[in-house]
Design a protein around this nucleic acid. Structure first.
Lengths: 110, 110
DNA sequence: AATTCATTTCTATATTTCTAGAAATGTATG
DNA sequence: CATACATTTCTAGAAATATAGAAATGAATT
């Protein structure tokens, strides 16, 4: 993971809408922990429509929201999986852990 | 500090050049810790020229570099202080601490 | 006070990112 | 299989950001 990769992650978080999505998913990632051991993908979690309601307040999913989700996925900050007609979203815990590590106190003497 | 503020910080880090500047300053912020108790500003540290050499490899400071430094300052990620002909740069430890906190394990149940 | 040095500001241009609407995709249901 | 539903992709335009060069600023030196 070099500067460019990290920059992609921060850039993804550097938009108010995307940051709200990220924080919403982060706040509701607990109920997801029911998969098999070692399983990375979510089995339950909010759909794109749920995120839309929570984050933009509107019922109607826009292409703009879809674009932001793609950015977050591209940065590997979230994962998405189809479940029937819906897409289910979740935080990517690996990336989150890496960010935690990146800023951890004393990582670079500060 | 709301989403917008945090987004400004992440956006500032979301550019490879700025991220390199940030990491360079983070890596050399130790020698600075010689000021008075409670003092926030740096008393020693790399100049803009130093950053230029390290980060872009060139001797010549560009307006582009200056622009990136302004973005980092605006996000309160770094501080700058004049010392004679030079500007001396340093990490803003408060903001860094806030970021550490933001990602700290278990902050939001993840 | 004129000159030099380090850096910033200004202005224009190139590039990227965001938003919106329409059409397309994949899945479920009648 | 036709239709509805949830979501994405495509395309174009608007807005924001990055880069470059020239001129301006502030501090030190002659």
């Amino acid at each position: 993971m070099d500067h460019k990769d990290n920059a992609v992650i921060f850039k993804a978080l550097g938009d108010p809408t995307r940051l709200r999505i990220f924080e919403f998913l982060r706040s509701c990632c607990c109920p997801v922990a029911v998969g098999e051991v070692g399983e990375v993908r979510p089995v339950i979690g909010p759909t794109v429509g749920d995120i839309c309601c929570t984050v933009t307040g509107s019922e109607k999913i826009t292409s703009s929201l879809s674009f932001h989700l793609k950015e977050l996925r591209n940065a590997e900050l979230i994962t998405m999986e189809r479940r029937g007609k819906n897409m289910i979203c979740a935080i990517n815990r690996e990336t989150l852990a890496r960010l935690t590590d990146y800023f951890k106190d004393g990582d670079s003497c500060c």
